[in-house]
Design a protein around this nucleic acid. Structure first.
Lengths: 218, 218
DNA sequence: TTTTATTTTTAGGGATGGCTAAAATTTGGT
DNA sequence: ACCAAATTTTAGCCATCCCTAAAAATAAAA
């Protein structure tokens, strides 16, 4: 059983490691956790003793398999609770983070298992981030067409399939460019149309548009 | 904002005070919290400074209005979460206490307000205990007929209305006597019949039985 | 390569919330 | 009223998790 502080460190290190690939620096952890580097050193040494990460003085840390699994489990809980807050309690997707930040530390395997079922075993949280399974595995994601995304999935625009000027002008008008983050808020099975979120704006797009945008879902 | 430890102390003192009426002793708190009297003294002095309880050395403590309201709010959260766990996640009513003990400390007024609505503004938790409203008030309860209880309400048998021997023999067979705790698990509006819990047993009773048992719901 | 800047660790300490042991106070029996 | 027993408080200490200040190691620049 890990303390609240330990879980938060593991989570932060997990995120940093998956973003930058490679050992994570003490300063990077301190910044992410909004704390001081000296505090990080203390905690990292403690966590190394618990075998959830490997730590070499002055060289940074990286999670062990045990640490990754523990961190992924906290993230799983966070994202499942976010789905609950949005889908069941009708919170807006940008209001739920602080509450989920608390709920993610509730200790009960059974609770999460039942919550998962209650929510219909969702694959993505309301921000479009993937929900790890109970073993800490995240479905691998790669470049795909926007039209292939599910509801609640999100990604970054990495290209277009056909690039005629009308299409590019349309993208321009909607402020979609390479690097733009797009979330699928809703999807109509009947015609493949979607409601998407781009920055602060939410709007409807047809299947034709969705089939011509490449998205990196990672 | 109160810490986890502070909230637990307030809750324990609230329960002790409502059971025994009058100032609560240090030892009683220590026993309820499974801690040492010296630790209780420390915390009680801290809470007295925060004006949530009044404390006189060697004489015990009692909650101020502020303290009562804070404690009732924690209890409200605990009981609402219990309803969620039983009604939505299909936990059994005797499995939910430890999880609710954690969930009760999540800080978000908005969350509880929405949870309350999501659950249909329940008046009682799955153990039959009343759920305080957002101002910390609990509906006053008194002696009533078992037939007047709602689903999930509970109470202690304090008497019978008609006492013919067949009825008393029936009660005996079902192990119902003065002081027996009875919970209403289900109620049929059509004929007023109920499913009740008595100790470890759950069984069906007719409206006629329910109309002849006095229950103290407090 | 040597100096300077940055990063990281160590040392020492503070707040919270718990503990044991000993002292103080109250309660109860005679 | 007095002594013994029980209760309660105080004093001093421990673990967790954070901090500042100073020292050590590494990285960058001249």
């Amino acid at each position: 059983m890990y303390s609240l502080a330990e879980e938060n460190y593991l989570k932060a290190i997990y995120h940093l490691e998956s973003k930058n690939k490679g050992a994570v620096s003490t300063n990077a952890i301190a910044e992410a956790m909004d704390t001081k580097p000296s505090s990080v050193t203390d905690m990292v040494q403690k966590l190394a003793e618990k075998k959830v990460l490997s730590y070499i003085k002055y060289k940074g840390t990286s999670l062990t398999e045990k640490g990754k699994k523990t961190a992924a489990n906290v993230i799983r809980k966070h994202r499942l609770w976010e789905v609950f807050l949005v889908e069941k309690l009708n919170f807006h997707w940008d209001e739920v983070h602080d509450i989920a930040e608390q709920l993610e530390h509730i200790h009960s395997e059974e609770l999460i298992s039942r919550l998962d079922k209650f929510l219909g075993f969702p694959d993505f949280d309301p921000h479009g981030d993937p929900i790890p399974d109970k073993h800490g595995n995240i479905k691998p994601t790669e470049k795909k067409l926007l039209s292939e995304l599910h509801k609640n999935q999100k990604g970054v625009c990495v290209g277009v399939k056909e690039s005629n000027s009308e299409f590019l002008q349309y993208l321009d008008k909607k402020h979609i460019t390479i690097g733009t983050k797009i979330s699928v808020l809703g999807k109509e099975f009947f015609d493949g149309s979607m409601v998407i979120q781009v920055g602060r704006d939410q709007f409807f797009i047809s299947q034709k548009i969705a089939e011509n945008l490449y998205i990196q879902t990672n």
